[in-house]
Amino acid sequence: MALIEAEGVRKVYRMDGVTVEALKGVTFSINEGEFVAIMGPSGSGKSTLMHILGCLDVPTSGRYLLGGVDVGSLSRDGLAGIRNSKIGFVFQGFNLLQRMSALENVELPMLYGGVPSRERAEKALAALKTVGLEERKGHRPNQLSGGQQQRVAIARALVNDPPLILADEPTGNLDTKTSVEVMELLVSLNEEHGKTIVLVTHEPDIASFSKRIIRVLDGSISSDEVVIKHDGIA
């Protein structure tokens, strides 16, 4: 069943009187349980696509359905609700709140989801366990390594049990070894927890962890192909 359905999604920005067409009408769908990488050079429109898929932005025209819901018709509050319950974000810069402990960072989405405080703590701890960081629950982000911070961010993305995880250059700030660890974590989330994962990257090595690669160029999809699996990374 299709989790993501994009039909002629077009995005036009108007900046200082100049109109820029970031997406020129893209159509594709992603089924539940897929692991898809979106690749493209900078300025290709992949960031815009990722913002729309993440309900941080709405298309200028065309339709984007997430789990059957037309996102374009939603209010800001509606979009916030979707981001809260249907999407988990993993960012390049981790985007953890510095003043809070790992556990509190993981609790954050539940705070806006109206989960009672006891249940929040339990679920957050369980999510930290999934990423193997339950011993670091009291640490602040600046007391953790980059890889650990990204795993806390992944725990945060998981905690409301959303069907979709959107990872935007999740290994951009990490060294090769940690990158592999983080990617393997995402793979296990896909394979063992059945999460649909959409990964935005420009690194072929990272993209090779996925099962399908959509390439974007100049606001259009240039290719959409299934990855032929081989052992390890190239």
């Binding site: 800001r76 509050d77 916030a80 981001r83 809260n84 985007n95 989405p109 806006y112 945060r156 409301n160």
Partner: peptide, 12 residues
């Protein structure tokens, strides 16, 4: 931005 991304509504 982070709070909004994880689901904070404008009114929150």
């Amino acid at each position: 931005g982070i709070r909004m991304a994880v689901g904070a509504r404008p009114r929150d």
